[in-house]
Amino acid sequence: MTAPIDTLKELEARVRDLEVTAQRTGQNLDAAITPLRAEVDRLRAAQNPAQPPAPKGDPTRWERVQLARAPGRPTALDYVEHLCTEFTELHGDRRYGDDPALIGGPARWQGVPVMLLLQQKGRDTKSKIKRRFGSANPEGYRKAVRLMDLADKFGLPVVALVDTQGAYPGLEAEERGQGWAIAESIRRMLNLRVPVVNVVIGEGGSGGALAIGVGNRVLIQENAWYSVISPEGAASIIWKDASKAPLAAEALRLTAPDLLELGIVEEVIPEPEGGAHLNPQQAAQAVGEAVTRHLRDLMAQSPTDLKTGRAARFRRLGAYTETT
């Protein structure tokens, strides 16, 4: 496929514009720039179809971040298409609108009826822009709360696929209570009396990811990242220079193996050699197998144990020492 030249030029101009502003003012504009830059890269790659060679050996942290953003990496809906035989998308938060960046509904996951919550980045430029590259607005998180209410009511386990740079940093998002909506979503998920399995399938950016990330089992794909801030954001704060993102990625320890070591995730789901984008079918099989295994395990637990076990899991997390 060849991207429309105008779209590419327009996006490139927008990226340059933002980069100049970021440089001039020392601000962190990462949330705006990174998805656009990734899209520019993807469009360029589409026009010049030579595939980059797959990295050999263990990728560095920064290489993994790039794999998490690789053009053609499966999106949440790609996994649904591979793994679910039925999916009824339910729309709207009943308060303001319907957010295409965070979607969901009941589905049959490898035969198991579940409630899906999906951060969907979009597959082509048009849908990526429509879905704001997976950065949700408050109505997205409020829809998630609504769907979690339904899951609790009907005893459906929740499967949440996390893939976002972060919640959308827009004016209207703030007016409608972005922080409030995220906090409410975290609380709702923690209180669920059904099994909850989360998978970080690409980017796990900060509170916007955590909003649907507080389940009984948190899994992450081998080349996904999860952090309090994106590497570009951290680099802008530390060195006032987003191009130092590779250094920030090292400092943040945001890769799947790091998170397993820190006890933040239960399991790292292996990806096909070179990354999930090189073999989406194989990537989906691994995700499907891991999620179903954890679901089956959790479905044997009582509703009370599911809730208290999840609460205990998050109550423990953190690193500190104690003086007596």
Binding site: I186, R187, S206, L210, Y226, V228, I237, R253, I264, F314
Partner: peptide, 17 residues
């Protein structure tokens, strides 16, 4: 959240809740 504790800081949002 505090950048220097990365994902551990992020998890405090859940812990406090």
């Amino acid at each position: 959240a505090r950048m220097q504790e990365s994902a551990l800081s992020l998890m405090q949002m859940a812990k406090t809740t």
